[in-house]
Design a protein around this nucleic acid. Structure first.
Lengths: 220, 220, 220, 220
DNA sequence: CAATAAACGAGACGGTACGTCGAGTCTTCCT
DNA sequence: AGGAAGACTCGACGTACCGTCTCGTTTATTG
């Protein structure tokens, strides 16, 4: 799966006919995202993308390995699907709110519902999973990692706290609320997660004892 | 879609020929689960189920509206897919461990990968979503609700804590770890979630201050 | 295929519930003929017959071996499908007209279009072919044979004429006109066949010479 | 149903890949005819044709509306199903023998058994009937018409004789003998029809008297 | 006159073919 | 030279019908 790597330089583009270098590719990706929003992942067909983007299916398969890769690329690179941006607000809470609620964050509708469609495909397609991980996940992971690292340096995270564990809290809860429980996720819900779950876990002074599982008594 | 509703108990059962009432239906569901584990949701075909269960496709479509419904029913009712059981261990921690790690809990492989396959289908099929919600989700939600309610009565959950928020923590983080991050989830990971995130959020004595932010929005 | 033989005595029939003896059987056959006329042979389904006649499919298959046999029996025995009757009018021409144009003759619509449907099935089903031959064909052949035999005795058929050959003329031409050419067949057409083809062939005084096939000269 | 009309000649033909234009189509038709001979019309399945011709069912349904249309086209155009040829032998008898006994004539096995299978379908499908009539029937009718016309000009057909009536004699009697009576038809039988029935009807000098009937109807 | 066995309606079942649709590959034609 | 157009193979889909089967009921005949 090396199709997704060759990010064409987009050489100023032709004047009359939009070749598939850069400009043309974005049109296809935008079409894909638009159809994706309208139809959902599994009702999206490559024939529809081809017809709608006035592209040939051969062109699509020349650039992308298949539906899943195209969608990953579309969700990653399309104009309306911005990259997450890391903003140093000076506090862990502010950083998390910024990451989660800005464009490219967890409150966006498109990536989440697309995620649902890709999940099953990823399980059986290593290339797709790698592409998804590298192109969609990695930037988001990097941003969140940076946020937690800054917080650790600021002393906002207690010493014994496992940052890897904190990592799953925000995206995991949002995912569950949206995809499983079918609820809506807005900035307020994000704030409640941060204030009610994440920060308490980051701040806890006395580590919870793990003495016994069956009859731990009252103090845990 | 009322196929999933008519749960014919068929306790008396036929003596000679195993009609699809009860016994036969379970065979089909078990076959479905087996193929599901082997192939995954999207590589599962109804032709394969029919052939493997020595059933006719017509029979499958007579009972279930399609692949998604069959899978929901299979994951819900097949013998190897047990219902979650609520065990009162005497403590919130013990209850959560029991709920998450026992059969039918969050560490089972089958339901999670199936979940991934169903998610996209659910978005466009209200009947399927309802069936999934009522048959798969509801019992699990009920158990978790009961666990939290007992904990609240025991005083294990602080007064101002939003239990609805705590609800998403465990399944959400497991979901994220398994489906998005691709990690494995074992009892230890569950324990770390409970001890490191959930219980601190339930216990927190002083609400986290909200003064330290550069971009607080409207006092969120 | 012995189902078609047991022509039930129809013992006065019951008073309340119409068993499949005699009376009930005729209802089914009549339903069959009605649907046959409406739908044609290949669009007729046994489910439809069963539903329409308020009979069980099991009942149908208990009496008849399948669709083809049922249809043969229906066309043969239904009230609206009378047997051909042999009338001695005193002349070959009169007899032929009577046989062809009366009820049960060649101008009836039902048997001919049903014939079309049965033909292909007969080729691969010896039982069906036998049933068709014995029940539908035999009585018609017998009548026609009798007609020609009487004509021969009367001297209406020349000495050297092959009666077996004459036999095919009338039904064959009607069949061709109706099924292949798509034309309609009425009494006048029958008369033209008889007068223009059959009787000349029966009367011919000088047998046609068979000298040469490629260059026979003018006289043949 | 215009699939059967666009007879792409594709004389130039591709040099590398045999598209379905022309060459590929013929392969499918030949496969169809071969299976048709082996299995008969009603045991022929499009799945078998597709598998045997290494074609996709989608391709079959893209070109033909269904089994019946495919078969009509196959019987009409396949290499082993030649068109009837009109040979002027100099006499009516010679012409008829040539038409009936040569390739594409009435003694061929394929068309007749196929005919039986198509008949019922034609009754309910106007498109199919039209296609069959135009593609299969028309050339055969034309040839026979030409034969009779030449005979009329030669004076081999008496003045008052209805040629349209003569038309049905040969194919009708063959049809009846083959499909209904289940007999075999060889060149000798054809000759007997011609000599014993058709030519006497064409030659008759004195119209058959109509006085000898007890039930003459309205002077028919 | 009740008990019993046969025959019934209803309709689910396994099987097979149907006709449709989407994925991914390939060729032709056009710019 | 490279893209649009679209036909191709493959295979799963969901539907329809056939002929078989079981169920529970009704009927006609026995004990």
């Amino acid at each position: 799966m090396n199709h997704l790597e060759d990010d064409v330089p987009a050489v100023g583009a032709a004047h009359t006919r939009p070749r598939v270098e850069g400009e043309r590719e974005e049109q296809i990706l935008d079409t894909t995202v638009r159809l994706l929003v309208d139809l959902g992942y599994d009702r999206l067909t490559l024939d529809a993308v081809a017809a709608d983007a006035h592209a040939s299916k051969a062109t699509l398969y020349r650039r992308w390995r298949g539906k899943a890769e195209l969608v990953v690329d579309a969700v990653t690179r399309a104009k309306r699907c911005p990259e997450p941006v890391d903003v140093d607000s000076g506090s862990l809470r502010g950083d998390l709110m910024a990451v989660a609620c800005n464009a490219g964050g967890l409150t966006d509708d498109v990536p989440l519902s697309v995620l649902a469609g890709l999940m099953s495909a990823m399980h059986h397609d290593a290339d797709l999973e790698r592409a998804f991980r590298e192109r969609f996940l990695a930037p988001r992971i990097d941003v969140l990692d940076a946020v937690f690292e800054r917080a650790r340096k600021r002393g906002e995270i207690e010493a014994g706290v496992d940052i890897q564990l904190l990592f799953d809290v925000l995206p995991g809860m949002v995912l569950h609320r949206r995809l499983i429980m079918g609820g809506s996720v807005d900035d307020d819900f994000i704030a409640r997660i941060i204030d009610g779950v994440l920060l308490p876990a980051a701040h806890r002074t006395e580590p919870v004892s793990r003495r016994s599982t069956t009859n731990p008594g009252r103090e845990l």
